[in-house]
């Protein structure tokens, strides 16, 4: 018996929720970046899962491949921002940064 696709969907939704909550609740720049990675990974899981259900092509996996590359670029940029932010604020706490307020 194959594993139902719905199991992967539920798991993906929960992982996405975990990532989103982490992003919104935590204030450490680095942990927020990790939360973003969690969300990206949950989407990847769904892509691969649906690709498994439509196995005639590899579109989902190719898409996941692209997402991983984007995630790498995003991590590099995000970490560079973290360093710049740290030099600027002398802290990694994001709620200190509110230059864009009204």
């Amino acid at each position: 018996m194959d594993i139902e696709i719905s199991s992967y969907i539920v798991l993906g939704a929960l992982l996405f929720g975990i990532g989103a909550i982490g992003f919104l609740v935590r204030r450490n720049f680095l942990i927020q970046l990790m939360s973003v990675e969690l969300m990206l990974n949950s989407v990847n899981l769904l892509l691969v899962g649906f690709n498994r259900a439509h196995a005639s092509s590899h579109d989902g996996q190719v898409f996941t491949f692209v997402v991983i590359a984007i995630a790498a670029a995003e991590a590099a940029l995000g970490l560079a921002l973290a360093i710049a932010y740290y030099r600027f604020k002398n802290s990694a706490e994001t709620d200190l940064g509110d230059l864009l307020r009204h």
């Binding site: 194959d2 909550i21 609740v25």
Partner: peptide
């Protein structure tokens, strides 16, 4: 935000979890 995201994720899991898609034969 925790409550919001939780409700969002759970309702998504509830709705999309009902998707019934058979796994196809592997080439």
């Amino acid at each position: 935000s925790t409550v919001l995201i939780l409700s969002l994720a759970l309702s998504m899991a509830a709705i999309l979890g009902r998707v019934d898609l058979p796994m196809s034969e592997l080439p």
